[in-house]
Nucleic acid binder design. Structure first.
Length: 557
RNA sequence: GCUCCUAUAGUGUAGUCCGGUUAAGCAUUUUGGCUUCUCAAGCCAAAGACUCGGGUUCAAAUCCCGAUGGGAGCACCA
């Protein structure tokens, strides 16, 4: 053993390490640490005195098996195992509120929960969490569905929290009758003050009869803000969430699906507790800002004698320089600094899609993040790396030049050329008509000196005869090896498009005024034949998504 | 302020529950090289980490205490 270790570490070994290895593999020695450690010291010292060759020889003769390289330990695939999970019986859910456009944060919650359902052959529920009539809109509801569909997430059950309004009333009343809840008619500020000072209010001492009467009054008489149903938690609790939180409150806004049918609405905690329980959810994963609610949800379900799901938490996901919250995005849109929620600089699903990010890449990326609770402020290039692998095998390679400079080539022996659409995969060829007038990139033109050669990719070598303002050259026979290879566009068929290059919206706290670069570029006419939304690689430039006939969005290098 | 969560290479993570089998694995990034009619992809290699301070132990990334950094909650939003 000492020999092996010495061999693996250039002829030197240490007794502490050997001791650890022995104890690790052979637990029976653990009681005799003192005795064996002395032996080990001696052996180790002997081994260290041997030369490399001597060590090798001894291993060869006595222990040849240890020269076989150790196999790598198999790494776990996917998410960590769930506690209390039975194959086929796991039910998870994704409960978005239809109050905004879906973004990468939604994707994380949806993907983690759906992966768990898949992993255990269980069921997955989409539940629109729509218990605040003032915030919900059909437009968002639809956008969320479109986004999830694009991500390729499938649901076994689709429902809305508001489907169960009668149940919330029933359970609310049950809690009141159990004296686990009461109606509070204090002012909002007083409630908040009492919470901070950990004092209960007079309403919590009212009798059952009064509470029942007030419950009825909440249905019509009380105005919004005048009365709420509070859970009897613990006003002295360290966890502020437990200090008699709101279960039901009056909101008179028009609900996007139910209209004005109800005016008393459940709070998030109450709704989630009841819904997860009756939907049979076994494992509920949410982002960690809800961590403190775990205790409350358990307490509500305990009070009602209802089944509790296992709750789990994961960190919020954000990209550097890409705001996720409506609070920040909305003003940017209003000021015209960002066009809309699908602006490619934003982390909304729609923006990611327009930018050329593939749903598979998002899934892989999110799975690679794991279930950590430490904050994840990922750089966007982590996602790009995944995306590149999906996009590379079927992106058509096209020529495109930016900051175009003219190059005329004399003695060109051909009038057209066929170029493969992909270097390794068979994606067909395209024919390009050429004459002596070309465009090349300004960046390349800068580097080209008179008297040198360049190769026009797929066409041939050109000897540069003049390199001022406009370039001139003549065709020469030659191999591509050792010559600078550049892309080109034929002037007579050049198609001009706008290239949009999205960059970080923010540098730290500061809005990046140069976050959207726009270039006027020339590309081949073949661009017009591609489908909208197709991913292209402009050779030596990067991957881009065709946004329209005259606009492309830069995806990444 | 109070309460809770969290801390592994430049970045993102595995390992932490149950201390030794891993002188810390993977991916990305960067840098070299190979391949290539792209600065793409692919292949090979290199670089690079257990926040700090105590304690327990033969042995600590792993357990305990403390400090520090980061985040969240303290809504009649979810």
């Amino acid at each position: 053993m000492a020999l092996q270790n010495a061999f693996e570490h250039e002829g030197e070994t240490k007794d502490k390490i050997i001791l650890g290895k022995i104890l690790g593999t052979k637990p029976e020695f653990r009681t005799k640490v003192k005795e064996i450690s002395k032996d080990i010291s001696e052996i180790v010292s002997d081994v260290n005195h041997l030369s490399n060759e001597e060590q090798k020889k001894e291993i060869d003769t006595d222990f040849p098996e240890i020269l076989i390289p150790k196999e790598k330990i198999q790494e776990r695939e996917g998410l960590p195992e769930l506690k209390n999970a039975i194959q086929g019986k796991v039910i998870t859910r994704f409960p978005p509120e239809p109050n905004g456009y879906p973004h990468i944060g939604h994707a994380k919650a949806a993907i983690i929960n759906s992966e768990y359902a898949k992993m255990y052959g269980g069921k997955f529920i989409l539940r629109m969490d729509d218990t605040n009539p003032e915030a919900e809109r059909m437009e968002y509801h639809a956008a969320i569905k479109v986004g999830l569909e694009w991500l390729g997430i499938e649901f076994d059950i689709v429902k809305s929290t508001s489907d169960d309004m009668e149940l919330f009333y029933e359970k609310g009343l049950e809690l009141i009758n159990l004296e686990k809840a009461y109606i509070c008619t204090c002012k909002r500020e007083d409630i908040s003050k009492n919470r901070r000072e950990r004092k209960d209010c007079k309403c919590s001492r009212e009798n059952l009869e009064k509470n029942n009467k007030n419950w009825t009054k909440m249905q019509d008489k009380f105005k919004p803000g005048e009365a709420i149903v509070r859970f009897r938690g613990d006003m002295k609790a360290d966890n502020a969430v437990m200090r008699d939180p709101v279960l039901l409150r009056i909101i008179e806004g028009k609900h996007y699906t139910l209209g004005e049918k109800y005016r008393v609405w459940p709070s998030y905690d109450f709704a989630v507790a009841i819904e997860d329980s009756i939907d049979g959810v076994t494992h509920a994963f949410r982002s960690k800002e809800f961590e403190l609610r775990e205790e409350l949800i358990d307490a509500i379900l305990d009070a009602l004698g209802m089944r509790k799901p296992d709750q789990g938490f994961f960190s919020r996901l954000e990209f550097k320089g890409m705001p996720i919250s409506k609070r920040i995005i909305k003003p940017l849109i209003e000021e015209g600094k960002v066009s809309w929620y699908d602006d490619p600089r934003l982390p909304t699903l729609e923006a990611l899609r327009r930018r050329g990010i593939k749903p598979e890449a998002i899934r892989k990326f999110i799975m690679s993040l794991g279930l950590t609770k430490a904050n994840t402020l990922a750089p966007f290039d982590a996602l790009e790396a995944f995306n590149r692998k999906f996009v590379d095998p079927d992106s058509v390679r096209l020529f495109m030049v930016s900051n175009a400079k003219k190059l005329s080539v004399k003695k060109l022996p051909v009038s057209s050329v066929e170029i493969p659409n992909h270097p390794v995969n068979d994606m067909g060829k395209r024919k390009i008509d050429v004459d002596e007038d070309f465009y090349i990139s300004g960046e390349d033109a800068k580097e080209i000196k008179e008297g040198t050669q360049v190769r026009l990719l797929g066409l041939g070598n050109v000897s540069i005869t003049k390199a001022v303002v406009e370039l001139e050259g003549e065709y020469v026979e030659g191999e591509p090896k050792g010559v600078t290879k550049i892309q080109w566009v034929s002037q007579k068929t050049a198609h001009q498009i706008k290239m949009i290059i999205p960059k970080a919206l923010f540098n730290g706290e500061e809005f990046n005024e140069d976050s959207l670069e726009e270039l006027d570029v020339y590309t081949e006419p073949y661009y017009l034949q591609l489908k909208e939304g197709e991913e292209i690689q402009f050779v030596r430039f990067g991957y881009c998504r065709k946004d329209s006939q005259n606009q492309a969005i830069f995806t990444h290098k």
